[in-house]
């Protein structure tokens, strides 16, 4: 039996992925259905349209599989806790979402996801399904702009999936869907910090260590290294540092630009703290003349009971803004 020092409310720690998946299907209230081993797919799919398939490891709920829905992903392939979905799950999801126009894979930049989705794509191509892939790499602290290929996919996946999902309700070709999804990725940057680790259900062990008096600046959502450790500081100081890192990146942000600003809790950081950070961040954005078209304050990209926050900025051109304003509905993010 594993340790459960985090007092997680679970059954068999080795069955968490399967069980949460079964719960998730129920949470969709009949709007989405289970397919195969561990895929979830919308019931109403627009006929003759290119499909948007998202996915990744479990344990970060509500992402990714909670982002399936109207104006969001058409389906999701779900892995085990912190593990990319295996290729056969990717394939079954691909088959279920495909409506003859091909399938766009949209997921985070992790070796496991890339390899498993790639194998899934090869299997799908063998069955005559065209697949394109757009990889989310919004984490500015994981590599310099010159090495985007090394950047992780983190909080920015929420606006990115939302925009790609909106596009999937409108466009007619896979190329067009891929173009817009790639534009959403190119327009999105995230900086995350962590203050406390989460723990893996099956081992009960925290996934990393962090001293009580430091914050991991730029850490990834599993505790991967960022730009360094800084002393525990105030929300005002932290917000300024996070925005400084965002502004220092290669996404041009000028006066008059419109953005989506997403303040995300990595798990146990309370919304009180998110709101205090938002209060600190907005005047800094305002001072640069950046217009916040939509604010999101929520806990959507998580890592179990990990504490920490991320700021994501998605810059909206007129095409993306129009897509942003479409309604969407999912377990993880809903917009009127």
């Amino acid at each position: 039996m594993s340790k459960n020092s985090a007092k997680k409310i679970i059954n068999d720690p080795l069955k968490c992925a399967d069980e949460l998946f079964e719960g998730l299907v129920l949470a969709y209230d009949g709007k989405a259905k289970r397919v195969g081993k561990r895929s979830i797919v919308m019931n109403d799919l627009r006929p003759g349209a290119p499909a948007l398939l998202i996915g990744g490891g479990a344990g970060h709920e509500p992402i990714y599989h909670g982002l399936v829905g109207k104006g969001m992903g058409d389906g999701a392939a779900v892995g085990d806790i912190f593990a990319a979905p295996p290729p056969d799950i990717v394939l079954e999801a691909t088959q279920a979402v495909n409506r003859g126009k091909g399938v766009l894979y949209l997921y985070g930049n992790y070796a496991g996801d890339i390899m498993n989705f790639d194998i899934g794509a090869e299997l799908a191509e063998e069955e005559g399904i065209t697949v394109k892939t757009v990889i989310i790499n919004d984490d500015v602290c994981s590599a310099p702009p010159s090495e985007k290929g090394k950047r992780r996919g983190v909080g920015g996946l929420v606006p990115i999936v939302k925009l790609a999902g909106a596009a999937a309700t409108r466009v007619d070709t896979l190329d067009e869907l891929a173009r817009i999804a790639q534009k959403a990725v190119d327009s999105t940057r995230t900086v995350g910090v962590s203050t406390k680790p989460g723990s893996i259900p099956a081992t009960g062990e925290p996934t990393f260590e962090l001293a009580d008096d430091v914050i991991g600046l730029g850490m990834g959502i599993h505790g991967e290294k960022g730009v360094g450790l800084i002393p525990m500081c105030t929300a005002d100081e932290l917000a300024a540092k996070m925005l400084e890192l965002l502004f220092g990146d290669d996404l041009e942000l000028n006066a008059g630009d419109e953005i989506v600003f997403f303040v995300n809790s990595l798990g146990s950081t309370h919304m009180m703290e998110l709101l205090i950070l938002l209060r600190a961040a907005r005047p800094i954005l305002d001072a640069k003349g950046i217009k916040v078209h939509q604010t999101i304050v929520d806990s959507i990209v998580t890592c179990q009971e990990m504490a920490g926050v991320s700021f994501s900025i998605t810059k909206l051109d007129s095409e993306l803004k129009e897509l942003w304003d479409l309604p969407c509905e999912s377990v993880g993010y809903t917009k009127l």
């Binding site: 892995g79 990319a84 498993n116």
Partner: peptide, 14 residues
């Protein structure tokens, strides 16, 4: 391995 593991090592060891 390939169909049960997922993650980097599922693809790699598979």
């Amino acid at each position: 391995m390939m169909t049960s593991m997922g993650g980097a090592s599922g693809a790699i060891f598979g």
